[in-house]
Design a binder for these strands. Structure first.
Length: 430
DNA sequence: AATGCGGGGAA
DNA sequence: TTCCCAGCATT
């Protein structure tokens, strides 16, 4: 680091900063802060909700979710007693769904271990699922007036500029360096306001691009500003490139219902609903778009998806030789690109019988519909059909925990990630 | 220390 | 396109 602080303004040495930094910052905050929903409350639970939602997410996006969520789950108890599915549905579209799951786990942790009370100490807050250093600091300082830091992306940017810190900000070393300075600057009187003011400054003035240094209350203390090099900071480590994954998606349709299933409890979009599908790391078979794929690798995937779920024999004949491919549409996550293509598979109504009826009845029904001719119905045929029913039935049973038939217009009531919006959009047009 | 985990807005 | 945003948990 530099030792001189530039010398152009003698007031910027550490001691002077300690004196003037919090005063200047808090004066600015007092007159310029935004009226945000979570700034009207002292309820630690509500502040918890806001802090979790605000992780990696902008204020404007969060506001409507925050209002709805608190209305639906007004307290730790209400949140903990809800099902995970209900919580995820409320979270739908907000992203980073593990936040919702952990907050739900956290609520249950508090109910089980701590009488449903929000802890007020930083160290205890850290024990709660989903609460890390930042959130613990934010809750402890904002809701309980404790003098602890809350270092988020905004704070990293602001402080890295004030100190003209030329190392990557993500390191432990940088975190310690910033914490030391913040501990020095943070006043005992309004520690929560100090933290919020720092973040507010980062959001409104000390922005990533086009920072408004002319109207910044701290510009006279800012080392980067005095060096006229504000945009150089914060220094960040390069990020990994996103991989492209092709996702072949199966829209299984039965009348006006669609087959949706639960995703596994870990990994991407955990516990959310989805159309069945497979990921292809490489897709030789698809140029960039378009229909009518003949029997081949793609078709095999499609066949497998149908039979895995016990839907063999219920597929309309038109799909037995070729399928129409829809898409692609692109969807981008933080760490991967999905190239989504999909096929729409219509299943015959008799499937209902496989699920609901006994083999004998099933066959009767099938017979009536005319798929098995009366004269050909000999004993071995009956046996074969019965076995097929058993197999299908097992497969259906295996999947019914994870899958469900849902009306198109009811998709809004389940936690279906935004990634599938384009498919829904397409289905409503057809 | 690196990686996985969403989604929307802005440049 | 890329980057950014009131991060956390796992490895």
């Amino acid at each position: 680091m530099d030792a001189s602080n530039g010398g152009s303004n003698g007031g910027s040495n550490d001691k002077a900063k300690k004196q003037s930094f919090p005063v200047l910052l808090l004066e600015w905050y007092a007159q310029g802060k935004r009226e945000l929903p979570w700034r009207k409350t002292g309820d630690p639970y509500a502040i918890w909700v806001s802090e979790v939602m605000l992780q990696q997410t902008q204020v404007k996006t969060v506001i409507p979710y925050y209002e709805r969520f608190l209305q639906r789950f007004p307290s730790v108890e209400q949140l903990g007693k809800a099902t995970l599915d209900e919580v995820l549905t409320e979270w739908r579209g907000l992203g980073y769904y593990s936040r919702a799951r952990r907050m739900w786990e956290g609520a249950n942790y508090l109910l089980d271990q701590r009488g449903g009370e929000m802890p007020k100490d930083y160290d205890i807050l850290l024990q709660v699922p989903g609460i890390g250093k930042y959130t613990a600091g934010a809750i402890a300082s904002i809701a309980f007036g404790q003098r602890v830091p809350a270092v988020d992306g905004n704070v990293l940017r602001v402080v890295s500029r004030i100190l003209a810190w030329s190392e990557p900000v993500e390191t432990v070393r940088s975190y310690r360096h910033f914490s030391t300075h913040l501990a020095m600057w943070q006043p005992a009187l309004q520690p929560g306001d100090f933290n919020q003011a720092l973040m507010e400054l980062g959001a409104m003035v000390c922005t990533p691009s086009k920072p408004m240094c002319e109207s910044c209350p701290l510009s006279q203390l800012c080392e980067a500003y005095s060096q006229d090099d504000v945009l150089f900071y914060p220094v960040k480590k390069p990020k990994a490139k996103r991989q492209i994954v092709t996702r072949l998606t199966f829209v299984l349709r039965r009348g006006d219902k669609l087959y949706l299933q639960k995703r596994p409890p870990q990994g991407l979009l955990a516990d959310l609903w989805e159309f069945p599908g497979v990921e292809l790391s490489q897709d030789n078979l698809l140029k960039d778009s378009l229909p009518k794929v003949e029997a081949g690798e793609l078709f095999n995937h499609f066949q497998k998806a149908v039979s895995e779920r016990g839907f063999d024999g219920w597929v309309k004949e038109q799909f037995e030789k070729s399928v129409t491919l829809h898409g692609p549409v692109w969807y981008t996550f933080s760490h991967r690109h999905w190239k989504i293509i999909w096929v729409i598979v219509d299943l015959l109504e008799p499937l209902v019988l496989v699920e609901k009826l006994k083999p004998r009845e099933c066959l009767d029904q099938i017979d009536q519909i005319g798929h098995i001719k009366q004269e050909g119905l000999e004993k071995n045929v009956l046996k074969e059909a019965s076995e097929q029913y058993q197999a299908d039935s097992k497969a259906v049973h295996r999947h019914e925990k994870h899958g469900d038939w849902i009306l198109l217009q009811d998709l809004g009531r389940i936690a279906l990630p935004v990634a599938f919006s384009a498919i829904i959009e397409d289905l409503t047009k057809i």
